[in-house]
Write a protein that binds this DNA or RNA. Structure first.
Lengths: 169, 169
DNA sequence: ACCATTCCATACGCCACAGTATGGAAAAGT
DNA sequence: ACTTTTCCATACTGTGGCGTATGGAATGGT
């Protein structure tokens, strides 16, 4: 489940080499490569779904809920790297529907928070979409940097700017 | 140069098949696969750079310049699809530096426009980054949809919302 | 003790693609 | 007319990954 360096890490033979085992062993546990990816993705999607519900259910005040979401981008690096790796494989037929469902769920929750702030359904949908695309775009931008890209001070400032811009006072 | 269905379309043999030719012919024109991709990327980057300068130089008023940029997302579909395909291959060692340079150039121009609107260098950089990530995220979101996703009316409304949010009145 | 099931290794066939070697036809130079 | 250069095809090697076949050791049930 540590496929943070790309979905192609689920290639059977390299993966088998990396662990101490061989292909023969692998094909006893899984029907094929597709099956492994399928199970991994299913587990990840469930985990992500639970995470989302917990994060959104923990805070009642919608404004604070949104802000905590933005702040979360800086923390839990591994989580975001895994997700980013999946985004990089959006063209993969098995990955694409997962990303699609996850995006729908996340945007729905974000839109819900905006709704509670008094925005119309259309306004909320637009704001949720813009918020989520800003997140996706940020990850995309990170993928293009091999270097660590932003020092933490600039990063913090940027996050604050995003909050100020996207979350109405 | 119509590699809009993925960078992996530059695989030698399939590409040769798709045209009427064979590998033997290909390897006379190019040293190897890497060379082809390199030339294609170089051409694209130059073309993109020119395009950017033209688009930004055509309009004096910085606010109108930014707005026209947003509106451009709906038009010139092919251009965006090509760029989106490149973004999907951001992990590719030859593509990554190109995307990085292009991102720097584009964000620099956007930041320039915000500067002209009276924002500080830091503010302009943040706004440019957010603007560009919104664009990247939008493309990412498109990649996750096989379906055409947004009807044009909703799309127009969304673009207007983004303009209203990111470009100060 | 015997047998079946579990888990893993070795070995094989298959395919897709990268890159090379070689030859041959057409065009161009002299 | 002869040779060279240009452009392309056929055929080969090599590599890497997917999936299968088969056997063997350990474990557990009876």
């Amino acid at each position: 489940m540590i496929a943070d360096q790309g979905v192609r890490a689920t290639a059977v033979e390299p993966l088998a080499r990396r662990m101490g085992i061989t292909k023969g062993s692998f094909y006893w546990h899984f029907a094929n490569r597709e099956s492994l990816l399928d199970q991994a993705l299913r587990r990840w999607e469930e985990h992500d779904s639970r995470n989302l519900n917990m994060a959104m259910g923990a805070i009642n005040e919608p404004r604070e809920r949104l802000i905590s979401l933005f702040r979360r981008v800086g923390r839990e690096r591994l989580t975001h790297r895994v997700f980013s790796a999946l985004c990089a494989a959006a063209d993969h037929p098995q990955v694409e529907p997962v990303l699609e469902r996850v995006a729908q769920r996340r945007m729905h929750h974000i839109a819900q928070a905006f709704s509670e702030l008094g925005f119309s359904p259309e306004q909320s949908a637009h704001r949720a979409r813009l918020t989520y695309t800003a997140y996706l775009g940020f990850l995309q931008l990170q993928r293009q940097h091999q270097a660590p890209h932003l020092d933490s001070r600039t990063f913090e400032a940027y996050i604050e700017h995003v909050i100020a811009t996207l979350v109405p006072a």
